[in-house]
Design a protein around this nucleic acid. Structure first.
Lengths: 248, 248
DNA sequence: GAGTGGTCTAGACCACTAT
DNA sequence: TAGTGGTCTAGACCACTCG
């Protein structure tokens, strides 16, 4: 653990190519190890950055980065005056990959195509205004689109777009590119809110997805913003077999 | 943008209390702004860290941190020799909060209780061995548990636990604490894989959840590890109305 | 080979908050 | 009020990868 500091400069320039043990990754791993081996128990206060830096023979910033990343994961909790402690309820979130429909279909070796069911320019309806925090009368684009995998319905997409946030989309016919793909490509966003649920297909939804009314569908809703500016809200329906996977 | 550097030390110690514009947050925001205002287009190569540091009047590390965090979000892509460019397909993942069942139920103002349906010590069945990469004959604990909100079925939990990874659990009767809560509290993990889907309830599942057979259920599967050591795999079923929300 | 990002060090000041 | 984490600077070396 505690090899004395190497003055970094040119004195003993670290045996060329050897992975330094006092990198933030190594420190992160060591702390993880102590948690898993119960050296430090949940709820326990661990030594301060200064102390750990001394123990590991590295700069405080290095320890700081290791601990910061563990805190992002939720494994430790940090407070200024109070120090760092092992979380009682570690890790409470996972990363969920957001698929681009075409890639997702093609990744399964199926052929992709889509079909625009409707495309209308409307004023924002009440529900959408509330959800996106937009004033009355805001022009929006409402698009309904069906995605296919090998000519079988794969996903039904019902989307509202805030035109002012993506002006170029007003003239886009969505002939070669689906709204999904267009937005992913041309409308960067910094914030996203998603909702996941299971539901029973309505009559129309069942027809579109070629399943029985009342059959289970996986519902994936997503709203995106770019720096407080709402961009789009979409509701996507998948036949029951749909599956999303995430690895933290 | 480009206020000259303040030597940090005691010379002009930054007008006390004023948010320094050359913090990594400010730089992050500025870069975000340039993306949203199309100053920098998707796919475009942006100036190197050194240049940006000069422009913003800050240290390169500061620019580095801003860009690193944007890269984590997926808004920019970075490669060593190649530089940093605005991502073509920005932001491809969201953070999904993993609920602790009891807290989740109580957060809705409902009363929580649970009931253990079965608890058996078994050798790992083939499917579980494959999924967790365990050798034949590995002892596991199989627990089935029903969670209630105000005495109505809320979630059905079917769980396999790798005993060697959490030896203390072998003697745990789960009288006061559900397996879910016990594991969250005493078994820290560093990696997680989750799967989400919709399904039709089987006869038994429907009975347990007090819904009609064939009714939609939301399925949430989760596997966790602590540094390569598999801990547990669980399959959780919710009646259709279940909903998870995440904000990036 | 050379340029860009990745990371480390040492030192310093600041901000929050527990005592 | 004092201690701990949060962040910044300046300088340096390293590693990867593109020509």
């Amino acid at each position: 653990m505690s090899r004395p500091v190497v003055p970094a400069k040119d004195v003993d320039p670290v045996p060329a190519g050897i992975r330094v043990p006092n990198s933030f990754r190594a420190i992160k791993a060591e702390i993880l190890k102590r948690i898993s081996e119960r050296v430090w128990l949940p709820g326990e206060l661990i030594p301060g950055e200064e102390d750990l830096a001394r123990e590991f023979g590295c700069a405080r910033v290095t320890v700081n980065r290791a601990l910061r990343e563990l805190a992002e994961i939720g494994l430790v909790e940090r407070k200024r005056r109070a120090g760092t402690r092992i979380a009682e309820h570690p890790l409470r979130e996972a990363r969920l990959e957001i698929p681009v429909v075409r890639s997702e279909v093609e990744a399964r070796g199926a052929q992709y195509r889509f079909s625009i069911l409707s495309r209308e320019r409307l004023e924002a309806p009440e529900a959408m205004r509330a959800r996106l925090d937009l004033p009355a009368g805001t022009p929006m684009l409402h698009v309904r689109c069906l995605h296919f995998a090998d000519n079988r319905p794969w996903q039904f997409e019902d989307r509202w777009i805030h035109i002012a946030a993506v002006p170029d989309i007003a003239d886009e016919p969505f002939e070669r590119m689906s709204p999904n793909e267009w937005l992913v490509k041309f409308a960067p966003f910094s914030e996203m809110e998603i909702g996941l649920s299971a539901a029973a297909a309505s009559g129309e939804e069942a027809t579109l997805l070629a399943i029985q009314p009342g059959a289970p569908v996986f519902v994936f809703e997503r709203t995106t913003w770019l720096i407080d500016q709402p961009i789009t809200h979409v509701r996507m329906l998948h036949p029951q077999s749909y599956r999303m996977v995430s690895r933290f």
